[in-house]
Amino acid sequence: MEKTLKLKAAGTSGSKHIWSSSLAFVLMAVVSLFTLFPLFWLFSSSLKDISEIFVNPPIWIPSTLHWENFRELFVERKFGIITWNSFLLSTTSTLIALIFCSLAGFAFAKYKFKGKQFLFVLVLASLMIPHEATMVPLFSIYKNMHLIDNIWGVILPDLANAFGIFFMRQYCMSLPDEMMEAARIDGCNEFKIFRKIVLPNLRSGFAGLGIILFVKQWNNFLWPSVILRSQENMTLSVALKALEDSNNTPYHLIMAGSVISVLPLLIIVLIFQKQLIAGMIDGAIKG
């Protein structure tokens, strides 16, 4: 308290300080303008006619708002089902991954078992296998497992999430041992301990990891674009790229589709921004 007072006192003295802090504010505002402007352009272009996309001088806000871009996407380009796919895929994969990660994280945090050290190092080492390097064999495995053009083909590899295990392990380690001991004395079996005592206490961990996984899966592109072939099975990212056409790309539709892909995430992240930012930093540093 004393410290901040002193700093404030030091800070308000002298006009030099006011200058440098306004300069800082302006710099910050300029950088924010650069980060937010492409989003403004995205929203503006999504309501343009195709003839208004590439024009000189540029049209900042279209005089008539072409909402029919969105209608065309939903009516003629199956974006209803595509959006649903993105939602279903991200939600399912996040929920299952949360369960698997918390189970394994809990085991590594609170149990003593043979080979624990070695297995944990194995989890650690698995982080070094980049998903990109496994695409070719996975593709031929998928052919045999009938997972090509199937959203489970996107979900399954992402469920083995070493990062998530680290993350949940951190949260589990902070749970007091006494809680579990007491439950054991009361005759709770191990699974019941996990379900009734551990799970409810991991809520903030679930929020943090959940939002990270959801965002990642929602925006996932490379692997889904390799295996999701038919329009009915595509996710938003894949469908956006599929709208591209070598002769006549409908950029107004791509922009409208991008809004469909960006807007829900923007809302979710604004709601959960604390968890997301805290989670990403924790994850990066501890992982």
Binding site: T35, P38, W41, S45, N219, S237, Y251, S258, I277
Partner: peptide, 20 residues
């Protein structure tokens, strides 16, 4: 938040905006 926004917005969407 303004600086962090580009990080979670779909790369595909942003790439197309950059094309424009």
């Amino acid at each position: 938040m303004a600086l962090f926004v580009p990080n979670f917005v779909s790369v595909v969407a942003v790439s197309f905006v950059f094309i424009l």
